[in-house]
């Protein structure tokens, strides 16, 4: 009992101290967003773990914060077995990052690559191609992360069935006016792809 009594007051005091001095949360949200807009994306990543309020404001501030020039183009391709995300710099074909995931968004292991080659082989021998699927949440995250942090000017989505939420998010984060190239195609062919593109760019 004595130990409990001796330990509880400091905890209580710490709580009181923090509520007394939490003047940051009293700043208008616009001012906090303005402060965050001067931070780099990497600092916003760290900041997002500070508190719940800061976390929600960081997500709003990301679009104002300057983005890394490390990558300028992003391509998401759906094969019959996997998703492939490729990021490149402008004009530098070899300087790229490629991420392969299973259709559920799980990163591919070497055995998955072998299985993919086997399924491609089976397709060539006449097996039926599995239908393209809508983008799972894990792939949404995989795409949103670079879109938020890198200055993406070219966005290509091949064999991707777009849903409106995903399209809207990409539109906001890439900034349509900055896009030099937008290419979307899905399993239904070019007509819908052009329609989608026009709708997006409008």
């Amino acid at each position: 009992l004595q130990m409990d009594n001796s330990m509880s007051p400091p905890l209580k005091k710490r709580k009181e101290d923090s509520s007394d001095t939490d003047v940051f949360s009293l700043l208008p949200d616009d001012c906090i967003l303005s402060v965050f807009s001067f931070l780099k994306q990497i600092d916003l990543d760290v900041l997002s773990s500070v508190s719940q309020k800061v976390h929600s404001l960081v997500n709003q501030a990301r679009s104002k914060s300057s983005r890394s020039q490390l990558f300028h183009s992003l391509r998401l391709y759906q094969s019959c077995f996997s998703f492939k995300l490729t990021m490149r710099r402008h004009g530098v074909k070899l300087d790229m990052v490629t991420i392969d995931t299973m259709r559920d968004g799980r990163l591919m292991k070497p055995s998955d690559h072998i299985a993919e080659h086997r399924s491609v082989e089976a397709l060539m021998l006449g097996a039926e191609r599995p239908p393209d699927q809508s983008i799972p949440l894990a792939i949404h995250r995989l795409v949103f992360f670079p879109i938020q942090r890198f200055d993406i000017h070219k966005l290509e989505m091949i064999n991707i069935t777009l849903d409106d939420t995903f399209t809207e998010y990409c539109k906001i984060w890439t900034g349509v006016h900055q896009l030099e190239k937008l290419m979307i195609s899905d399993a239904h062919g070019e007509t819908e792809a052009i329609g989608r593109r026009s709708q997006w760019l409008a």
Binding site: K15, S18, T21, D22, V23, F24, S25, V35, F36, F38, L39, K40, D43, V46, L47, S49, V50, S51, Q52, V54, H55
Partner: peptide
């Protein structure tokens, strides 16, 4: 204020902003 938190760790940012982790 941005310069004060630029490049800091989560704990340092909490200390500068005088915020407590509520996650």
């Amino acid at each position: 204020l941005a310069n004060k938190i630029n490049g800091k760790t989560v704990e340092e940012m909490r200390e500068i902003l005088q915020l407590e982790c509520d996650f």
